[in-house]
Amino acid sequence: MALSDSSIKRIALTSGEPAGIGSDLCIQLAQHELACELVIIGSPTLLAQRAKQLGYYVQINTFDPLAPRKYASVGHLTVVPIELAVAAQCGQLNTNNSAYVLKTISEATQGCLNHTFDAMVTAPVHKAVINDAGFAFSGHTEYIAELTGGTPVMMLETPGLRVALVTIHLPLAKVPQAITAARLRSVINVLHHDLTTRFNIANPKILVCGLNPHAGEGGHLGREELDIIDPVLADFRQQGMDIQGSLPADTLFTPHYLDSADAVLAMYHDQGLPVLKHKGFGQAVNITLGLPIIRTSVDHGTALTLAGTGKADLGSLQYALQTALTMAHNT
């Protein structure tokens, strides 16, 4: 029986840093049956070269946005062609290709905004080489938010645990001044809204970390909990939100708390993400909440030393794709 176009979700996948494993992962993914139409944003030349290097035969087709939607075929890649400035070498970063990397992200983002794509998944990029090329780039999350508007909130998920962040890519010394009541309210509103609407969780239970050791120890180890965090949480509880905290991070990440929680809110990047990655590295997904589009990503970096070797682990990309697809069906 023929399916309507809308029943088949069309997902864009950016191919990432050309010297890294992004292209490898795209090619490996093409060897599997997928429950969506997958469109790669990147260089057909690079994909063909990397497929040959890895020993795969892949047929590359140019994406036609007007063509009927169809499920991805094993051994085929549908591509929005964007060519490199210079040929890519495995493991060798080149600033000349930084504009190419940014263009793949913006192309996928615009495609989501104009509803050509139902969601986008991003392969890893290398922030340092993009900045070395003269572009101010702190990460996918911030860059995509500049293109789309909205209030970005980073959340990582692995089976059994979701961790969202109040602050993202900030030096640790700047974190305390960034923990404001306004910022905290904004992040919690986004987290609660998206857990409800994009993950179909009715009245999600959210656990909130304190900023300081022992959540400030009653003010003896810092007053951010007493002066900022706890009053905001009390306001949300009065509104009926199921939110607990502030809790010491060293005891929050235990089964006693996590078994009944839908998400944890950490104050900064390295407070929550090491625990999540220890639990599920390679089987985790990075999700940007608070945007008008759906965006997920892998939980790992460019793995320059693995590019072209065939040793890249596909697990995180598969999870990122499945999460994007689930969110697209829920929205």
Rank of each mutant, 00 (worst) to 15 (best):
G55T: 08
G55W: 06
Y56T: 07
Y57I: 09
I60D: 10
N61F: 07
N61R: 14
P68T: 00
P68H: 14
R69G: 11
A72I: 05
V79M: 07
V79E: 00
V79F: 06
P81S: 05
P81E: 02
I82M: 04
A87G: 11
A88R: 01
Q89C: 13
Q89W: 10
L93D: 02
N94L: 12
N96E: 13
Y100N: 04
L102W: 01
L102R: 13
E107N: 11
A108W: 00
T109K: 02
G111R: 00
D118T: 08
A119M: 09
V121T: 03
V121L: 00
T122W: 07
T122G: 05
A123G: 03
K127N: 02
A128V: 15
S138Q: 13
H140Y: 06
E142D: 14
I144Q: 00
T148V: 09
T151D: 11
L156W: 01
T158P: 11
P159L: 15
G160V: 07
G160T: 02
R162W: 12
A173K: 15
A173E: 12
K174N: 14
K174V: 08
Q177F: 07
A178P: 02
A182L: 14
L184D: 00
V187T: 11
V190Q: 05
V190M: 02
L191I: 01
H192K: 11
